[in-house]
Design a protein around this nucleic acid. Sequence first.
DNA 1: TCTGGGGTCCTAGGACCC
DNA 2: TCTGGGGTCCTAGGACCC
Length: 421
Amino acid sequence: MIALVDCNNFYASAERLFCPRVLKAPVVVLSNNDGCVIARSEQAKVLGIKMGAPAFLMEKQLTENNVEVFSSNYTLYNSISDRVHATISKFVMDWEKYSIDESFIDLSGYYGMNPYRYCKLIRATVFRNVGIPVSIGIAPTRTLAKMANRYAKKERRHIGVFMLDTPAKTEMVLKYTKVEDVWGIGRQFSAFLNSHGVITAWDLIQMPQAWIRKNMSVVGLRLVTELKGIPCAELETEPAIKKNIGIAKSFGSLLSRREDVAAALGNYVTAAAEKLRAQKSCCSRIQVFIQTNGFRTQDRQYFRSITIQLPVATSFTPELLNYADIALSRIWKDSYNYKKVGIFLENLVDRDKVQLGLYDTKDREKQRKLMTAVDSINKAFNGKELVKFGRQGAGGRWSLRRQRLSPCYTTRLSEVLVIKY
DNA sequence: TCTGGGGTCCTAGGACCC
DNA sequence: TCTGGGGTCCTAGGACCC
């Protein structure tokens, strides 16, 4: 059996941990630049606040209902996530961190213990040790475990654990779950399936294999096979090496000067290159794009992207900054209000398997040592970037708006909670 | 004034190779 | 006069996830 452990309203729950004031109040967490709602506590859901709703359209509703609003604080959420995963991992041999707030755990052959009772124990322990409420779904496959988890959240809230261990229960939940709520079925496929009379997950598994293969590709076929209780994928117990690394963010305000956009790009490139080195990769292709704000119909719109092939794969920040600058100059146009710039590092290869260039004159070994030194200095100062590159700029005209940011309670000494008694 | 960011996998079609 | 088959790599685009 496989179980999916999923934190309830994770970002909202994390904000509550160190802020007892908001324990009973409705809580929402906003996306970057305080743009949209991306997490809601149960009380906020009851108020009818929708996922993805733009914050500036909801000011009245939020104020009138005394909703506690937070900017997103990923430093805090990642740290809480580590604690949750560390607690869960003590219970099992094999587990997969699927996302910041979910893990799959392998319960097969577990000490003759009842998986249901074991998961109740896991849930209670996470809540006691970390303070985050979780729901757990247990089933023979990952897709069914997802479905069981959703059922636990909706219909077994007080227990928080649900197991699909008999055909009757499985049939009941398959009939209960609409196709659009099945893991892997998004807007397009649910509209298509509905138009063919497929409304529930149960309807879906009645469809002929060939029909699924033809209309939903092998991805759909795997999904349906998993819904029938036949596993199609193992747990990924090792974190996967990324195949692309991208950073693209909206600016806190619109920018039209090239130097401001270039500074933002410089910062994204620097951060992306650091991620690249962290997984011991180099990239041999980069893509840069710029874009205006499509919501502003009064503005002229512009979007363009460009891809550059590098002669030799690299993870050397100054070199990547150079190429990114060349890319930007090729697509840059004056007198637009830009909203966003982004960099993608592509064609990643293991740094020890880089194809060298015949006419390459750069001392790659020296570059690597330099970047290792830079990374370790910056890391030693706990995320405060001490070593900077010229192209990152000094100003912060492009930086994010985060007006309601909570403290980094668990990662910054100066922001640790002080308890008075 | 203000509408998120970071990923994966699959398919189809074209260019090219032997 | 007849005009193949098997394969790789690259790119663009679509769909989906949290």
